[in-house]
């Protein structure tokens, strides 16, 4: 048990919704708007927690359990991932596969809760979510396996401590391929722009948002919060690969990592402002691109 690691978990729990605010503010600046307050996600979660929930008669207990289980799993993942060079609270050999499965379990809970409503619209969203995440997961597993192979260990905390400037010097090509692959997975898994548009409700082409349409009140607050945490988790994966540098001073390293996290949020905002969402038939090809990048790094890394 390590107090630094626990402090990181607390920090992530507190700051994750702020990332959403940074993304929205960046998009507002690009569009020439004033934009919503940076703390808007906190306000929304607070507001939703004070509302009552409406449940359809066709739903069962599973519909109510879905958001709660999703949030619980996301918080569990937070305990398993390192932050900067500080190891995770709990780490063991092979935990990166466990993390991928936990993320898969969270997706399954969301999808089953969506199917539980009996709405054909939500069923459509569930089908799309599963189709696309089936490809994105392959890319993520290949990327993490390549890193595990290069680091010579199966524990995610140790894997990321092995990503040093030296590794970048000798294997820079492979690591940059992995960086691109994880960025694409990051955008797809968090339902950000080239794959999905978080702003469009009631649009027939949306993927993730459609599954949570029937949730209301505290349930929806939990969904909002866990999607912010998921953004934080996958962002950490990306930054661990892209930021190998370390000064040695604990606070300085920590501050630079947190700063990088918000820079990533700004980058997501820029991507969303400068790109349109892909047509639905191009999404699998986009994700296959991520798989190919990760696979390429894997094959080149094996030599």
């Amino acid at each position: 048990m390590n107090w630094d690691s626990l402090a990181n978990v607390a920090f992530a729990l507190g700051c994750a919704p702020f990332l959403m605010g940074v993304i929205n503010r960046t998009k507002a600046i690009f569009a020439g708007r004033q934009g919503q307050p940076l703390l808007q996600t906190y306000y929304e979660i607070w507001r939703l927690l004070h509302k009552g929930a409406v449940y359809s008669k066709t739903t069962s207990w599973f519909f109510r359990a879905g958001p709660l289980a999703g949030l619980a799993i996301t918080v569990l993942v937070l305990f398993l991932i390192p932050f900067g060079r500080v190891p995770a609270v709990v780490s063991f050999q092979g935990d990166f596969i466990f993390i991928v499965y936990l993320l898969g379990l969270m997706r399954m809970m969301t999808v089953l809760a969506a199917l539980d409503t009996g709405s054909s619209f939500e069923g459509m969203g569930a089908s799309r979510e599963l189709q696309f995440s089936a490809i994105a997961e392959v890319a993520l597993v290949f990327a993490l396996s390549t890193l595990a192979w290069k680091a010579g260990t199966l524990s995610i905390s140790e894997i990321f401590t092995k990503v040093t400037p030296d590794l970048w010097r000798t294997e820079g090509g492979i690591l940059s391929l992995l960086g691109v692959a994880i960025l694409l997975v990051f955008l797809a898994e968090n339902a950000r722009v080239p794959i999905d548009d978080p702003n469009t409700h009631l649009e027939l082409t949306m993927i993730h948002e459609v599954m949570v349409l029937d949730h209301s009140g505290p349930d929806f607050a939990m969904i909002l919060y866990s999607s912010a945490l998921k953004l934080w988790i996958l962002g950490t994966f990306l930054l661990e690969v892209l930021l190998p540098f370390q000064v040695g001073n604990f606070w300085l390293d920590h501050a630079s990592f947190i700063f990088a996290m918000f820079a990533l949020a700004v980058l997501v905002g820029i991507i969303e402002s400068s790109m349109a969402r892909l047509r639905l038939i191009f999404v699998p090809r986009f994700l296959m691109g991520a798989v190919i990048f990760a696979l390429l790094a894997f094959l080149l890394g094996l030599r």
Partner: peptide
Amino acid sequence: GYTGSLIIGAFLLALSL
């Protein structure tokens, strides 16, 4: 198709390695 071509491309790369 393009996606199929990409998958075959990955196999070709493995084969050539």
